Amino acid sequence: MRRVRIGDMEVEDSAGSISERLAEAFARREHPLCLCQPVGVPMYVARAGGRHVLKRMPGSGPRHGPDCDSYEPPHALSGLGAVHGEAIVENAEDGVTLLKLDFSLSKQAGRMAPAAREASDAGAVKTDGSLLSLRALLHYLWEQAEFNRWRPAMTGRRNWAVLRKFLLEAAEGKTAKGKALADVLFIPEMFDAERDAAISQRRETFLSRAMKAEGKRRSLAVLIGEVKEVAPARFGHRVVIKHLPRFPFMLNEDAHRRMNAVFAPELALWNATAESHLIAIATFGIDAAGIASIESIALMVATDRWLPFENRYEGALINALAKRGASFVKSLRYNMPAAQPMACVVLRQDGAAPLGMYVVPDGAEGDYREKLDELIAESGIAAWTWNIGDGAMPELPG
């Protein structure tokens, strides 16, 4: 529970009057103060999902108390540090965030799309912070929706309907390629046989708006969905998304081959972990026959709690912390290559300083360990390290 000061009044963010207070602050362009620290931490008010919400000021996350809902680990501990301020430009005055993407949101009529950057080795190991890859966009929205965070009260409260609601809210106030991201982001509704006709009608209405022709070019939409299967088709393959059983997305042979090469670790991890979720983000268009075809795609694996993880060691650490009742923030890689160290999670300990937790791959060489030591030293946060080559997971913090 968070206390904030709006004008000369202190109020809890769960109070019944908070919506009215935030609306007033929004109209006055006032910056409320989060009282997690004695001097207060400035915040701002934005509109999302038809309501007013409290947002932390750009770059202010580490200034909040570790117990505060607005606490954010230092950006350098994840891939966010390389893109924030360049590929992600926040404006707290109007609440609009500019996203600079390295992939297209349109396609020239009658032409094949260029090879997807995310479906190439360059896309998989890209370190440039000036543009967001497709995977980085997914990580950003996941983090904005706070699905990389865990606290015990979240147990049993996440399903696809919840994810969809907050991912769509996270997209509001974001622009990319001259478009409002919310206008092109397609996240399927949770399937309900009794409402199938109404859901289908809303889907078709949204896609017809999102894919309007722009001269000789046609807009593409961005899909975020959970993969049910990738199956052979008569020509190429089709990606079947959960909650869209009768609306497949076609994938040509070249894109399928590249996806399997670049995202082999994610596909293997999903295949080996029965309770995991495979999340796809893809740009797609619809042809004259009404068939959806994927232009570019990226994949991410999440635990049964919908927390992203990159390997079974990260999965084991996340599950152990969650079972212990810990609160933590999972770091996301964005554009950062696998060879670059980052924190696995930042543990938020009640009444104590945050703790960075690192999983060091087996066979990590001197250069990796030097970078890790520098990262830990620069973060200013104490560290817990699991060296995979040394064997089983070390004892967790008390």
Rank of each mutant, 00 (worst) to 15 (best):
S327Q: 11
F26T: 02
R258L: 09
M357A: 02
E143A: 15
V329L: 05
P394M: 10
A364W: 00
T283V: 13
L355F: 00
Y44P: 03
G50Q: 06
I6A: 03
E310S: 12
T175E: 06
P114H: 00
A27S: 04
M57H: 10
Q108Y: 13
E20C: 04
V184Q: 04
M1D: 11
L375W: 02
E310L: 08
L355V: 04
E214N: 14
S78L: 12
L347A: 05
R135D: 06
L98Y: 04
P32T: 01
D121R: 06
A231S: 09
I286M: 08
L167Y: 03
N311P: 11
D183Y: 07
G79Y: 07
H277F: 02
S379F: 09
R195K: 13
G215A: 15
A280Y: 10
A320G: 05
R135S: 14
G173Q: 08
R56Y: 09
N252V: 08
L131A: 13
K165Q: 15
I6C: 08
A115Y: 14
W150I: 10
E24S: 10
V4R: 00
M1Y: 01
A364E: 05
K126D: 15
H75F: 01
L22W: 02
Q349T: 13
L223A: 13
G391Q: 05
H52T: 11
D350E: 14
V345R: 03
L185F: 03
L317M: 14
F103M: 06
W150K: 02
V11W: 00
S120I: 00
N91P: 00
A161H: 10
L244K: 01
H139A: 13
E310I: 10
I279M: 08
F328H: 11
D94Q: 01
A109V: 03
R257L: 12
R234M: 06
L396G: 08
F247A: 12
S130I: 04
A255E: 11
L181G: 05
R218M: 04
F166T: 07
E253A: 07
T283C: 07
L22I: 12
A343G: 03
R149N: 07
R257I: 02
E194M: 13
G178Q: 05
H277Q: 03
R348Y: 01
F284A: 12
P354H: 01
R257Y: 02
A288F: 12
C34V: 04
R29P: 01
A122Q: 11
A76H: 06
H237I: 01
S379H: 13
P394A: 11
G366I: 08
G173P: 11
Q201H: 14
L244S: 04
R21F: 15
A180D: 15
G16L: 02
G236N: 11
L181S: 03
L141R: 10
A76E: 09
